[in-house]
C-alpha cells in the first residue's frame, strides 16, 4: 500500500513537469524515466533472481529496431512500440532457455554475447535495418514543445507500468521464488521451486519494458544505428543504477536512476573532455563505499530506530 502511494505521488509530481515549459528539463526527465525503466527491468533478473544480466542493451536495441522497421512499413506508432516489447520478450524466452542454466560470471558473459549477436544481425541485414548506415524514423508533425511533452509522458507511462509491475512481482509468488533462487538455487529446487520456469519469467519481465523503452527512444531521436542502441553502456548503466539505489528493492532503481543522471549531467558539464573517466571514478567510489545502495542508509536508520523502540518496551 505504502509503495503504491509513493509511486502514485512520485509519478503525479513528475507529470506536472511540462507546466514549467523547460525543454531541457523535459529531456532530462524523459531520460530519467527511461533510466528507471532500464534499471527496474534489470532488477527483475539481476536484483531479485541474482542473475547478472548484460542483455539489457539487446532488449533495448531489439525493441528499437523492431519498432523502427515496422514503422517504416506503415505500422501505427503505438502498435510498433508494443511490437518492440513483444519482440524483446520472445527473444528473452528463446535466449533465456539457452543461457539461464548458466550461473554467475558464465551467465553474465553469455548474456553479453546476445547483444553482440543482435548487433551483428542488424549490421549484416542492411536491406531491412539499414545496417551500419542506421535507420531513419518517420518525422512526427508536432512543435518542439509538443514533441518533448509527448515523449516525456510516453516514457513516464511505461516507467509507471514497469514500477507497478515491480510492486506486484515483489509481493507475488514469482518474486518470492526469484528471491529463493537468488539466495540458494539448489535448495529452492528441492523446496519445489521450478527455478528454470521462474527465471525465464523473470528474464521476460526484464525484457519487455526495456524493449518498449528502446522503441520509444527510437521514435524520440528519429535515427538509430547499431552502436547507439546496442551500446554496452545500456547494459552496464542499469546495473550501476540498481547497485547505487539498492539491489532487489522496489525504489532503489529509481533513486539510482536519478543519481546516475544527475552525475552524468554534472560531470558532462564540468569535465567535458574526461567525463567518462570522471564518471567511472565516481561510480567506483559509490559502489565501494555504499555497496548496498543508498536505500540501505535509510533502512539502517529505520532499523536502529526500531531496535531502540524495542528496547524501551
Amino acid at each position: 500500500m505504502k509503495n503504491w502511494l509513493i509511486l502514485l505521488a512520485g509519478t503525479g509530481v513528475l507529470a506536472l513537469l511540462p507546466l514549467l515549459g523547460d525543454n531541457y528539463l523535459m529531456r532530462l526527465a524523459t531520460m530519467v524515466a527511461m533510466y528507471v525503466i532500464l534499471a527496474q527491468s534489470w532488477n527483475f533478473i539481476g536484483g531479485l533472481a541474482g542473475y547478472p544480466s548484460f542483455a539489457t542493451a539487446g532488449f533495448f536495441g531489439l525493441g528499437a529496431y523492431t519498432s523502427a522497421v515496422l514503422q517504416g512499413m506503415g505500422v501505427p506508432l503505438f502498435a510498433s512500440w508494443g511490437a518492440g516489447g513483444l519482440a524483446a520478450v520472445i527473444f528473452s524466452a528463446l535466449v533465456g532457455g539457452a543461457i539461464l542454466h548458466l550461473r554467475g560470471h558464465y551467465f553474465a558473459i553469455a548474456s553479453l554475447v546476445t547483444v553482440e549477436v543482435l548487433r551483428e544481425i542488424v549490421n549484416t541485414t542492411p536491406d531491412i535495418t539499414g545496417g551500419g548506415m542506421g535507420l531513419n524514423l518517420p518525422i512526427m508533425r508536432m512543435t518542439v514543445a509538443e514533441h518533448a511533452t509527448f515523449f516525456f509522458y510516453s516514457m513516464l507511462a511505461v516507467a509507471f507500468a514497469c514500477m507497478a509491475c515491480a510492486i506486484v512481482v515483489h509481493k507475488s509468488k514469482l518474486g518470492f521464488a526469484l528471491r529463493c533462487i537468488q539466495q540458494n538455487e539448489d535448495a529452492a529446487n528441492i523446496l519445489g521451486v521450478n527455478a528454470y520456469l521462474y527465471k525465464t519469467i523473470g528474464f521476460g519481465f526484464s525484457a519487455v519494458f526495456a524493449g518498449i523503452a528502446g522503441a520509444i527512444y527510437a521514435s524520440w531521436v528519429h535515427y538509430i544505428e547499431p552502436p547507439d542502441v546496442f551500446d554496452v553502456l545500456i547494459s552496464v548503466k542499469p546495473l550501476v543504477m540498481v547497485l547505487l539505489g539498492g539491489l532487489g528493492t522496489i525504489f532503489g532503481p529509481v533513486i539510482g536512476a536519478f543519481i546516475l543522471l544527475t552525475f552524468e549531467e554534472f560531470v558532462w558539464r564540468t569535465f567535458l573532455t574526461v567525463h567518462a573517466a570522471a564518471l567511472g571514478v565516481i561510480i567506483v567510489a559509490l559502489v565501494l563505499f555504499l555497496p548496498n545502495g543508498v536505500l540501505s542508509l535509510t533502512r539502517e536508520k529505520l532499523g536502529l530506530r526500531r531496535r531502540a523502540a524495542g528496547e524501551k518496551r
Binding site: F176, C180, Q183, G192
Partner: peptide, 20 residues
C-alpha cells in the same frame, strides 16, 4: 541450506508455498 537473508518464517513458508 537456509535462505540466509530471509526470515525463519519465510524460509519455511517457501516450502509450504512451492512444494506444499
Amino acid at each position: 541450506q537456509p535462505f540466509p537473508k530471509m526470515t525463519v518464517l519465510e524460509n519455511v513458508a517457501a516450502g509450504a508455498l512451492f512444494a506444499g
